[in-house]
Design a binder for these strands. Structure first.
Length: 112
DNA sequence: GTTCTGACTGCGA
DNA sequence: GTCGCAGCCAGAA
């Protein structure tokens, strides 16, 4: 009995992202049980204000930061990602693309 | 009730 | 690699 709301699941999915790792909006939505609601995730993240929420780990499917460079949150996301060991260059995440799925991350073998 | 917009996604050029 | 178009869904006016 799903008493949890869509927003609650989305937030939970974002919190499920391990540190130093990134996930896509669509993936987060799918993980929350809301496939196709990537935009809803974006809206929630943009509205959320919880420092405990790793929203900075949420990127676009291309592995790019979904936040416009004109937005102050953009620099903040980059700074946070770098602080976690994620390589960000010119608004893009380097070292590894946005995980197609969290399962893939768990299955992802140590790269060399 | 309808209409518009959006921190998206996928495909094609 | 970048850019543009169309599709999809939800929330707000």
């Amino acid at each position: 009995m799903p008493g949890k709301s869509a927003a609650d699941r989305i937030l939970a999915a974002i919190r499920a992202v391990p540190r130093g790792q990134v996930a896509g909006y669509g993936e987060i939505a799918r993980r929350a049980g809301l496939p196709g609601r990537a935009r809803l995730v974006a809206k929630l993240v943009s509205e959320n204000d919880d420092p405990k929420l790793p929203w900075h780990r949420v990127l676009r499917s291309d592995g790019r930061i979904a936040i416009p460079v004109d937005s102050p949150s953009h620099a903040e996301q980059v700074q946070r990602l770098r602080a976690e060991g994620v390589v960000v260059e010119n608004g893009r995440v380097r070292g590894q693309r946005a995980a197609a799925s969290l399962d893939e991350v768990l299955w992802a073998p140590p790269r060399r």
